[in-house]
């Protein structure tokens, strides 16, 4: 709640929403962020090997006026293994305007997030874009548990 980026995020969210209205969602979605890594340009379908799922590609783009980015978690296990701790099962970091979007990989390689928890998406980028649409300009807040 007290992260310094909060106010900034709110401003960016509001500005982004206005931008999306002006330019149209498709136009904004098609424009990658200036500092996007080359590998993030396409939403790659992933190869599914018998040994498990490959980690999806990182991404970094502006989607409907929101900055969405994602990358494999440092020392991430793609949700595999029995590690304890708050990031159990969180093999991929996804952020919307610098706020964490809790995501989870399903056994079949699809993804859900805390915003869209009961439907699946083919990639973390897909789940991030769905969250942007669902948020409708709102900012993510840390989720209270327990």
């Amino acid at each position: 709640m007290s992260r310094p980026s909060r106010r900034l995020v709110l401003h960016r969210g509001a500005a982004g929403l206005a931008g999306a209205v002006l330019a149209g969602p498709a136009a904004v979605a098609a424009a990658p962020a200036a500092h996007a890594r080359p590998a993030a340009d396409k939403d790659h379908p992933r190869a599914h090997g018998p040994a498990g799922h490959e980690m999806p590609e990182p991404f970094d783009e502006i989607y409907e006026g929101r900055h969405i980015e994602g990358w494999p978690e440092e020392g991430g296990h793609g949700g595999h293994g029995g590690h304890d701790g708050p990031h159990e099962g969180m093999g991929f970091v996804v952020r919307i305007d610098n706020d964490d979007l809790h995501v989870m990989e399903n056994a079949n390689g699809s993804w859900v997030s805390v915003v869209n928890h009961y439907e699946t998406f083919t990639s973390p980028r897909g789940v991030a874009r769905a969250a942007v649409r669902e948020l409708n300009g709102a900012d993510l807040v840390p989720v209270v548990t327990g």
């Binding site: 159990e88 989870m104 989720v143």
Partner: peptide, 11 residues
Amino acid sequence: NAFIMSDTDNG
């Protein structure tokens, strides 16, 4: 919420 966040297919 606590279970929604921590229930994972491989954990």
